[in-house]
Amino acid sequence: MQRPLARLRVPDRPVLFTVVFWVVLAATGAVAYASEPSTPPWAVPFGVNLALVAVLWLLLPWRRCEGWRRLLPVAFLLATFALGFTGSAEIHQLLTLLAIANVAFVHGMRAAAVIVGCLTGALFVMTAVSSGRGLGEATVQTVLVIVFAAFVLGMTSAVLEARRRREEAQRLLARVRELTVAQERARMGAEMHDSIGHHLTVIKLSLENAERFRSRRPEAAWDEVRQAKELTVEALADARRWVRALRPLALEGRVGSAALQRLAASFDGTGLAVSFEVLGGEVPLEPDVELVLYRVLQEGLTNAVRHAGARHVDGTLTFSGEAVVLAVADDGRGRDREGRGGFGLSSLAERARAVGGTLVAGDRPGGGFEVRAELPVRAKVAT
């Protein structure tokens, strides 16, 4: 049962086309059989024709493809056209228009336009000559078919343009994400160079001084060694912080508030007391929203350790309807132009705007610093 249902939900096939197809197919069969009280001789071939049209519809591709599947639109077009000979009361022409639209999806608008020209010409000849209805009626019927064909092809063109724009937007979004990752890595590389590189440079100088003082001034040499040891501990703490910063969002299989709680707990060894609280009924978040929340908490904790001289940080995650709010507040020195207003927070503000949210940061009235992000539960494209 699942595979036929899956065919009905082909993502590339317009939903309106699906609805129109099944309604018209059912009407074609109902009208044809209702017009004959007894079983006509064409009932069997007409029924087979209807079944063939239905099967081909489920198999049709709805974008350019290669191989034998390229022939399916042509087969479907011929099958719908054949309904006029096996017993349809002209209602099948709407199915033929859908077949022309499918040709446009797979083979292009030019191929569909050529087919429309050929079919309308054949229809005019068949109506005027074969059916004997006269030129006037043939002209009216042909014009009606042309008008409907133009409407269907116009709708198809709009769908193709929307699809092209969506795919282009997806490519641009993927590119933006790549650039964001590259920018973040560059920032982290620069900060690692400034922090850990500085410590290693001073350690090297201290050990060189110790080597130079070891005979003439032993006490000074030991002072240099002790300083190098202290700087080594600080460099190791910095390295551990950067390892935490490079961890993925899902920590040991955790996502959502569990990942944020795990991140907060990972700062226990830094001398910073971190509390984290979740308020409101938690709801599943989109991955992009989760990532922004994770980076906001990460930036708030890292800055509290590196720049603020804070002893305690409070993190609060609040779920309220269609929004989620993360506030990270510390009891440190407050805003520092070098550490608190740089690339980190501006980059986070851009990320928040990208998912339809906001981020504000600044000194708290009672002292300390706070970062507050308010995001939608489901990411939106910022306007």
Rank of each mutant, 00 (worst) to 15 (best):
M1T: 02
Q2I: 11
P4G: 04
L5S: 13
T18N: 11
V19M: 02
P37F: 06
V44H: 03
V44I: 08
F46S: 04
L60S: 08
R69N: 03
R69A: 14
R69Y: 12
R70W: 13
P73R: 03
F76E: 00
F81I: 03
F85T: 06
S88H: 10
E90Q: 01
E90I: 00
A99S: 08
F105T: 09
V106H: 02
V106S: 08
G108K: 04
M109L: 06
A113M: 10
A113E: 07
V116E: 01
L119V: 15
T120G: 01
G121H: 06
L123A: 10
F124H: 07
F124V: 07
V143T: 10
I146Q: 05
V147K: 09
F148C: 11
A150W: 06
G154K: 13
M155L: 11
S157A: 12
A158E: 14
A169K: 03
R175G: 12
V176M: 14
L179V: 05
A182E: 13
E191I: 02
D194S: 06
I196L: 10
H198I: 00
H199Y: 14
T201I: 09
T201V: 11
L205A: 04
E208M: 04
P218Q: 02
Q227R: 13
Q227A: 09
A228P: 04
E234A: 13
L246S: 13
L246Y: 10
P248A: 05
E252T: 11
A258R: 07
S266K: 05
F276A: 03
V283G: 00
P284D: 10
P284R: 06
P287W: 09
P287C: 05
Y294T: 07
R295S: 08
R295Y: 15
L297R: 05
L301P: 14
V305S: 04
H307L: 13
V313S: 05
D314R: 10
G321T: 00
L326E: 14
G332R: 00
G341H: 05
G344S: 05
S347Y: 11
E350K: 02
R351I: 00
V355L: 12
D363L: 01
F369T: 12
E370Q: 15
A373V: 09
E374T: 09
K380C: 14
K380I: 10
K380G: 12
